[in-house]
Simulated assay, not measured.
Amino acid sequence: MKIREVIVVEGRDDTAKLKQAVDADTIETNGSAVNDAVIKQIRHAQAKRGVIIFTDPDHPGSRIRHIIDHAVPGCKHAFLQRDDARAKNDHDNSLGIEHASPEALRQALRNVYTLAGDEPAQINREDLIAAGLIGSAEAGARRERLGELLQIGHTNGKQLLKRLSMFRISKGQFNQAMNQVLQEEDDERKTNSNT
Rank of each mutant, 00 (worst) to 15 (best):
43 R>H: 04
43 R>S: 06
46 Q>N: 14
46 Q>F: 11
50 G>S: 14
51 V>C: 07
51 V>L: 01
51 V>H: 00
52 I>C: 06
53 I>Q: 00
53 I>P: 09
53 I>S: 04
54 F>P: 06
54 F>G: 05
55 T>L: 04
55 T>M: 11
57 P>K: 00
57 P>L: 07
58 D>E: 10
58 D>W: 07
58 D>G: 05
59 H>S: 15
60 P>C: 12
60 P>R: 07
60 P>L: 13
62 S>W: 08
63 R>F: 09
63 R>T: 06
64 I>Y: 00
64 I>S: 08
64 I>V: 12
65 R>P: 04
65 R>H: 07
65 R>N: 01
65 R>W: 15
66 H>P: 01
66 H>N: 14
67 I>E: 11
67 I>M: 09
67 I>R: 09
68 I>H: 05
70 H>V: 04
71 A>C: 13
72 V>L: 06
72 V>E: 09
72 V>Y: 08
72 V>G: 08
72 V>Q: 03
73 P>F: 05
74 G>C: 15
75 C>H: 01
76 K>Y: 09
76 K>R: 14
76 K>C: 10
76 K>W: 07
76 K>V: 12
77 H>Y: 02
77 H>I: 00
77 H>F: 01
79 F>I: 09
80 L>A: 08
81 Q>L: 06
81 Q>A: 03
82 R>T: 08
84 D>V: 03
84 D>I: 04
84 D>G: 10
84 D>M: 14
85 A>H: 05
86 R>N: 06
87 A>D: 11
87 A>S: 13
88 K>R: 10
89 N>C: 07
89 N>D: 15
92 D>E: 13
92 D>P: 04
93 N>T: 03
93 N>S: 15
94 S>P: 07
95 L>K: 13
95 L>D: 08
95 L>E: 13
95 L>R: 10
96 G>L: 08
97 I>C: 04
98 E>P: 11
98 E>R: 02
98 E>V: 00
98 E>L: 03
98 E>A: 12
99 H>T: 10
100 A>V: 08
100 A>D: 01
100 A>M: 02
101 S>D: 06
104 A>N: 07
105 L>E: 02
106 R>D: 07
106 R>V: 11
106 R>G: 01
106 R>F: 00
108 A>P: 06
109 L>D: 02
109 L>E: 01
109 L>P: 02
